[in-house]
Design a protein around this nucleic acid. Structure first.
Lengths: 192, 192
DNA sequence: CGACACATGTAACACGTTACATGATTTG
DNA sequence: CAAATCATGTAACGTGTTACATGTGTCG
């Protein structure tokens, strides 16, 4: 869905051909989400089928097929921009599902899963921070916004993972620390 | 991808049939991401095709087809739990793309887009908070974790939107406040 | 010339959603 | 009995990824 409207938005700036659309999309979002060129063409053909874009005349001398927005396309784009992204339109959060199911899956140490993810997310966070310090000079607003978005998200994810660790620690005593009372049969069962 | 492993995780708890898998999945994640029953069956058939699950004998007297994990399925599930979710495995963020493109799309007031989204997200945040106060009593750890995940995310999103608003305000003076110098032709062009 | 970037497209497949068809069981 | 819930499946379609086929232009 994002691609479809992304292409429409780019075409609102000016008519473009497929290859150019990919380049511009990746430039605007800082190559955060690389866009497969094949998808550009299939999406364009669907947009054309649905009357949201049209070719500006036939393929030019080098075989480039330039597309432009139709009025219907402009209406659809306007609708996209004025309608907020709702929760039920978002994809399932694989991480949340993973942690949630780790808690009740036998043989799985949920806290280890949380810790492994935390390490990976912190590493990602550092990479983002590094990118940001280098990006502040050139300053392409769109790319900076995307970068901030990912930073805020990653920070929130780390906080959530820490919060989850705490919550899990309250359920189950920490694994092998100072000498403690022996585990009960029930706890052993729950741990496998 | 999340569903595939979600089903494997549930089957690690105990063998189940399709309908039951949907019920358990929605219970574990607090009905946050409703799971289409059709998808359960198609996913199960793919998992069966790939040798990750197997029927426990033929359909029972009521026609229920119970599935269980195979050894290969257990290995795959273990792999999922021990491998962190990486950034490039995540879907594109429609909101980030929308705001990023709003900035450079002619005729679109990026700040209005940000504001509209903020309202929607804050509303969602309130709904989540309401859910949480009511959920703390019953206390299903998995569902609480998912709820927290969504809370942390929504909070981060609001912060990012505010941050974006600030960034955008630095680019373009606020629309119609105290008397100011008239807009230049260039600014009018940029705004449509 | 050979490699690489530019440029368009198709095929196959995975995943997700919606809608439909079909029947058994439960319950007001 | 009628309606709702339980239960299994299929068909059609949208979207996304990967890989392949094909050709032009440029530059070392």
């Amino acid at each position: 869905m994002s691609i479809k409207y992304g292409l429409l938005a780019l075409l609102e700036r000016e008519p473009m051909y497929g290859y150019q659309l990919r380049t511009e999309f990746e430039r605007s979002t800082g190559a955060t989400w690389p866009l497969n060129i094949g998808q550009v063409y299939t999406t364009l053909s669907r947009l054309h089928r649905d009357g949201l874009v049209a070719e500006t005349g036939e393929a030019d001398d080098q075989g480039k097929v330039v597309y432009q927005l139709t009025d219907a396309g402009r209406v659809e784009l306007e609708r996209w921009f004025t309608t907020p992204v709702t929760q039920d339109a978002r994809p399932r959060d694989e991480l949340a599902i993973k942690i949630a199911l780790a808690v009740t899956t036998p043989g799985v140490d949920a806290r280890a899963v949380v810790q492994a993810q935390r390490t990976a997310t912190v590493r990602h966070l550092q990479e983002l921070t590094r990118l940001k310090t280098r990006a502040d000079d050139n300053a392409d607003t769109a790319w900076l916004l995307v970068l901030d978005s990912m930073l805020f998200r990653a920070e929130a994810e780390v906080r959530w993972l820490d919060h989850s660790e705490t919550r899990l620690a309250r359920l189950e005593p920490p694994p092998a620390a100072a000498p403690r009372a022996p585990v009960t049969p029930h706890q052993q069962e729950a741990r496998r």
